[in-house]
Design a protein around this nucleic acid. Structure first.
Length: 135
RNA sequence: AAAGUAGACCACCUUAUUGCUUCGUGAAUUCGAAGAGGAAAGUCCGGACACCAAAGAGUAUCAUAGCGGAUAACAUCCGUCCGGUGUAAACCGAGGACAAGUGCAACAGAAAGCAAGUACAGUUAGGCUGUAGUGAAACCAGGUAAACUCUAUGAGGUGCAAUGCUACGUAUAUUGAAAUCCCGAAAGGGUAAGGACUACUCGUCUAAUUUCAAGGGGUAAGCAGCUAAAGUUAUAUAGUAAUAUAUAAUAUAGAUAAAUGAUAAGGAUUCGCUUUUGCGAAAACAGAAUCCGGCUUAUGGUCUACUUUUAAU
RNA sequence: CGGGGUGUAGCUUAGUCCGGUUAAAGUGCUGGUCUGGGGGACCAGAGAUCGGAGGUUCGAAUCCUCUCACCCCGA
């Protein structure tokens, strides 16, 4: 009942608050050491099933490498676009996955992409992630 | 009209839907308010602030350099002299001293120092004087200080990852090395080897534990510092000006794997096509991180004043 | 946020402190000789406006200022 309520709420309001953000340095280190990853150009996803302390099921984070984007403006923009795409489509994950996970998205191309394209790829990635966690 | 010089201003706007951060209200997933820059950048100067015991003296080191002023301070700004660049408007200048000492000077040249000396001319016994030639510089108190140095002035060091508090953590753990004075029963007093304060010296503090080295683990969390400030604008007065004083108005970013976004519609600007209507495209440089004053670099556009050239009157 | 370092032939380095006449070396490259050919050895040659732009100086890879790129360190 509670879960159903939560799901309805998430469907109705596409939020992405501070608490859902992956911020712990230790968890991130763990993620990069042990996490699995796969790519759908230009996005790359890295995920790991761990027992973090947050109330939310999934903690997510976004990164744009400094080598590809030299200017801080561009890095910010790419991260914002990715975050927006995730925010709108994360209900796919929260419906399907029950165990706690941490996720990191990385942008792999050097050029900027339009929002529509990023959202398309994001949906594809999230569906793929769901399949993998089931197996 | 073209080219140039100087200065000032702007940095797309509005609405809707939907998110993020902070604050207030509230007790919930609500309502309201606010939310990047002229350079936020480079970190090149100068401060504020914090800690280092007190923030002291000298030396070393570093910086600055006509003269006068402004300022919290500065390598900034204003005025002015001199020198240089440019037809000009205007711009640029580390612009003190080689008459204290030391060093350096390729090639050329007789000679780049403290000792020598070429050619010619004048006078001619010698010598002296002048000129020529080489060179960036040639006998003159030579050139060179973005060479050492000297003179004057200034600067203690480290930086918000400063610093304080809370939580977690057997936590001044453990191991090794060094030092561990004198009086006294004790309390306490004296001294300062060692240690601390900084690169060194002086000076100061410190005596029952202290210092140095090795080294495993935990958290890498929260709060304060944290944003109202040498602020901006207007007027008046003083001053050539920078600026100062007075009065009035205006004041609201504070994130921390790091908020300030996405989508849609309309309008304005510029460019291209087109007779117009219209259609299509573009919109620079760039993202706060303790806060201010500058400098430097990147960069789209508008306006004003001035200079030169050409054309017309 | 703060602090420090490096840019020189295609590559790896000298020279920079203390300015000087034609920027040195190894390796790689090109050509030739030795060999039937290859490898190898030997001989010869090309290749740099010293990361970029200004300044000081008679003269700058070297001194000074600004700037670009890359790298390292710091609770």
């Amino acid at each position: 009942m509670l879960r159903l309520k939560l799901t309805i709420f998430v469907l109705m309001r596409f939020t992405f608050k501070k608490e859902e953000k992956l911020k712990s340095k230790k968890l991130i280190e763990q993620l990069f050491e042990k996490g699995d990853s796969f790519t759908k150009f230009p996005l790359r996803i890295k995920f790991l099933k761990t027992d973090h302390h947050s109330e939310n099921v999934i903690q997510a984070s976004f990164s744009a490498p400094k080598r590809k984007f030299k200017k801080a403006v561009d890095r910010n923009k790419v991260k914002r676009l990715m975050r927006e795409a995730y925010r709108k489509n994360k209900h796919l994950l929260t419906d399907a996955i029950k165990e706690k996970h941490i996720i990191m998205f990385t942008f792999t191309d050097e050029n900027e992409h339009k929002y529509v394209e990023i959202e398309e790829k994001m949906i594809f990635l999230l569906k793929m992630l769901i399949d993998k966690t089931k197996n």
